Amino acid sequence: MSDHEPPILARRTLLLAGAGLAGAGLPLGGTAAAEGAPPEGALTDLPLVPPRTEFVYEAVVEIAPLVPLGDSPLGERRIVPITGGRFQGPRIRGTVLPGGADRQLVRKDGVRRLDALYEMQAEDGAILTVRNQVLIDPGRDGAPDYRFSTIEVTAPEGPHAWLNRLVLVGTLTSLRPAREAVLVRAFRLA
């Protein structure tokens, strides 16, 4: 490589930085606004472009009463059977099939870890397997609960295979006492 030619890594860094600025809607020659500025303590000076979310579906998941499974070294174990429900979004809808369950661990610090595994059937008959892992931190000092999840959907090849290519995050809301169900909303990171 000659002295006049910048290293390939430096070119790539400049191209990526330019693409990041353009993708953030910032002028290439201007300064970054506070929103796109790198966070204090960041390792690079590239602008911060947080992911967006797009709604994929919501599911009303009907549940049976909680079954305690006893204490463990990690906390209290319990299970909540899934008995049915419905789901719907802009590109897909159908029913939540009975037979799944939400395995829960209530840690000594009060935080609950939920690991739900169940199937949903789309209107066209395709069966989707859903794994929803939720962390619930009870609100302290008047703050609301922290209830967010990562959702993995496994779909068969065909019209719903697009679900296999998404990173999904979700929210969880209890519908009690109105009904024995929870509301799961799924969003794709974009």
Rank of each mutant, 00 (worst) to 15 (best):
I63V: 15
G100K: 00
A32H: 04
G100C: 01
W162H: 08
S174C: 03
D109W: 01
V61P: 05
P7Y: 08
G85D: 06
A181V: 02
V111K: 01
R11N: 15
M1T: 14
R176W: 10
A34I: 14
D102Y: 03
Y57S: 11
R86Y: 13
G125M: 08
F187C: 01
R131M: 06
V61I: 15
P156S: 09
R112C: 07
Q133S: 10
V61D: 10
Q88W: 13
T31P: 14
P98R: 04
R165V: 00
V153W: 10
R93T: 11
V56C: 02
G142W: 08
L189C: 09
D115G: 00
V56P: 00
R78S: 13
G110Y: 01
G30F: 04
T173W: 06
E180Q: 11
N164A: 07
H160T: 07
I92W: 01
V111D: 01
R176K: 08
L46D: 08
G75S: 05
A126T: 12
G30P: 05
T171W: 01
Q121M: 13
L16F: 09
G110T: 05
P65R: 05
S2T: 15
V80P: 00
V130N: 00
P90A: 08
S72A: 11
P39C: 04
P65Q: 06
F87P: 02
A24Y: 01
A42K: 03
D45K: 12
V67W: 04
V61R: 07
E58P: 01
V111S: 04
I79G: 00
L97N: 11
L66Y: 08
L9G: 13
L15K: 06
N132A: 05
I63D: 01
L189W: 03
L128P: 00
A64L: 10
D115S: 06
D45Q: 14
V56G: 02
T154F: 04
D3I: 14
A59P: 03
A42C: 05
L21S: 11
A17N: 15
N164C: 11
G100V: 03
V182Y: 02
Q88R: 14
L26G: 11
E157Y: 10
A126E: 05
D3G: 07
Y57D: 04
N164F: 09
T83Y: 04
I127F: 02
G110C: 05
V182T: 03
R86P: 00
E119W: 06
A122L: 06
S72T: 13
T83D: 09
G89K: 08
D124I: 12
R52W: 06
P73G: 10
L189F: 03
G75K: 03
I92N: 00
D141E: 14
G23K: 09
E5Q: 15
R78P: 00
A10L: 12
V184K: 01
G36P: 00
Q88H: 13
Y57W: 15
P144F: 13
S72K: 07
S149W: 02
W162S: 04
R147L: 11
Y118D: 04
Y118M: 01
L163I: 08
R112F: 05
